[in-house]
């Protein structure tokens, strides 16, 4: 697997990255992990990246860990298209 495979589009890599964050947050108390996962993505992911994440979420969130799906309500949907 290469996350940088240009033909694969941006989603595989972002799913991977979101799940990496989730794995760290899963070792925290559930509610704290949920809040911090959302704020981590809000704080560090540029709107383009969040837009792609929402493309995955809006399509059902296949491949994302449950904590990401659960936190998605608190992730900021980018307002302006980049």
């Amino acid at each position: 697997m290469s996350l940088n495979d240009t033909h694969a589009g941006p989603h595989a890599k972002l799913i991977y990255m979101a799940n990496q964050i989730a794995k760290f947050m899963e070792s925290k108390p559930h509610d704290e992990g949920l809040t911090l996962l959302a704020s981590h993505i809000n704080d560090f992911w540029e709107p383009r990246m969040r837009r792609h994440l929402f493309e995955v979420l809006d399509a059902g969130g296949a491949g994302l860990r449950p904590l990401v799906l659960e936190a998605s309500a608190a992730i900021k949907r980018p307002v302006v298209a980049a």
């Binding site: 940088n4 589009g9 941006p10 704080d43 560090f44 540029e46 709107p47 383009r48």
Partner: peptide, 16 residues
Amino acid sequence: DEPGLRIPNMLDAAVE
């Protein structure tokens, strides 16, 4: 008020 791209994200966005 939104965070910008980090180097790896810049390169991803460039490819895109």
